[in-house]
Design a protein around this nucleic acid. Structure first.
Lengths: 143, 143
DNA sequence: TATTGTTATACTCTATAACTATA
DNA sequence: TATAGTTATAGAGTATAACAATA
């Protein structure tokens, strides 16, 4: 047990600081694809839960449903997502990630991984992989 | 080596998602002290680098120098920070964290740790301590 | 009457540029 | 001429509330 542990700022605070710095770099990287982090988040979430409607995606992303409209509008304009009326419930859309959307997601993820290399390069690959996996677990439990 | 690792979204993206959820909880917790996350960040940074002026703090926090003015104004109004003119260079201030400021920081940190318990409770204490330490290392290298 | 998506609007946050004083 | 702090202002981002279509 290290004595210094108690004196670290809360994990959540350190995370916020890191997230902010990382987002700036990530945003700059994917701007070359004409994609905003907002679009990336929606694409990731849509890919993970194909049955989600716009309200559900907004909830998962932690933003207002009204804010989703523009994001999906833009993804649709890029040809990354298609709005298909659900015949079972015509109030809502089935949000389909197109082949183009999957390609875009893959490219943005690649750029994100390069930013990761830059920011997290001080850790050994093993440490980083373990960290990555644990963060994924915790992030997945938030929903 | 796990095959699934390659398919995780970038660490930076997961972090941003976690940071967002955590900040909402942290902000709600420290609101009981009439403190905003912004104030907390400035207090932490000031405590870590006593010689920093407002421009330097803004740089470390990744915000515009003009945005610091209100933050320091509010911290001063709370009695948490004192602006003392530097006699060596009267353009800048020495920003002193008061005893009251240190108490406030400790209380807010305590609340932040409780939020951490809530969010990170799915990890074992050992895993979490290692994670915390590594995150602190990476966050510290950003400056 | 409730739900899904949408629009209109207001509010918060942040950045940019111009100003004062000091160097 | 450059730097530290400040002020004014504009832009981006976000949330809230009201609305239309559907259930």
């Amino acid at each position: 047990m290290t004595q210094s542990h108690e004196e670290l700022p809360p994990l959540g605070y350190l995370l916020t600081k890191l997230a902010r710095a990382t987002t700036v770099r990530f945003a700059a990287a994917i701007a070359t694809l004409n994609v905003h982090p907002r679009h990336y988040g929606a694409l990731v979430t849509l890919s993970q839960d194909a049955s989600a409607n716009q309200h559900r995606i907004a909830q998962l992303l932690g933003i207002a449903p009204s804010a989703m409209v523009t994001v999906i509008d833009e993804l649709e304009a890029m040809g990354a997502v298609a709005r298909l009326r659900d015949p079972k419930n015509r109030r809502q859309f089935i949000l389909e990630v197109t082949a183009e959307g999957r390609t875009l997601l893959a490219r943005a993820t690649q750029l994100g991984n390069e930013v990761d290399d830059d920011v997290w390069g001080v850790l050994t690959p093993e440490d980083r992989a373990i960290l990555h996996q644990r963060i994924a677990v915790v992030a997945g439990r938030l929903d």
